Simulated assay, not measured.
Amino acid sequence: MICLKETTEEKLKVLNRVGKLDQDSFDFVTDVDTYFESNFYSNDNEMLLIHLSVAINRMINSENVDRMPDELWQQIINKPEYKVAESTWNDLKSKAPVEFTESETQYILLHILNILRRNQND
């Protein structure tokens, strides 16, 4: 069952149609969305899902994302929710169709942290 918001689902389907997101990757991104809906009651995961889609494409094409500034990374790892974000990503990444670089992982963790913090404030 796909739980994606309609607009997010349409964006991902477009990426799938134009060959930027293969079926395994689409399934993974959909599973990530379902995971956040089930475990964190989050239904606004678009930034993470789109980032994952683009990151998968970068990994397949051996492209790099710009390195995250050290001061931003320090802020992220010092947030109280960081350990939950890291644990969450460790649960999910084994199902990913690619292996992500450290730089991609940092941005993914930033998006996960944002979801956790936003839902904590709801």
Rank of each mutant, 00 (worst) to 15 (best):
R67H: 06
R67F: 12
F36P: 08
L109W: 11
W73K: 05
D70V: 12
E63V: 05
S62T: 04
Y35N: 00
H51W: 10
D31T: 04
S94Q: 10
P80E: 14
V32T: 08
L116Q: 11
E102R: 07
E81A: 07
P97N: 05
T88V: 13
L109C: 02
Y35I: 03
D70H: 03
R58E: 05
F36M: 08
E86Q: 14
P80H: 13
N43E: 06
R67K: 12
N78E: 10
N57P: 02
Y107L: 03
I50P: 11
T101Q: 02
T30E: 15
N114P: 00
V54F: 03
F40L: 09
D70T: 08
L109V: 09
F40M: 05
D33A: 05
E63F: 12
L92D: 00
K93G: 01
M47V: 10
T105S: 14
S103V: 05
V84P: 00
V84N: 06
A85M: 11
H111A: 06
K79H: 14
E63M: 13
T101G: 02
R117N: 10
T30H: 01
W89R: 02
S62Y: 11
V84L: 13
I50Y: 08
E104H: 14
E86P: 00
I60N: 12
S87E: 07
V65W: 04
H51K: 02
S62L: 08
I77V: 15
E46K: 06
K93N: 07
D31C: 06
E71L: 10
Y82L: 08
I112V: 15
L116M: 09
D91V: 05
I108Q: 03
N78K: 09
S94A: 02
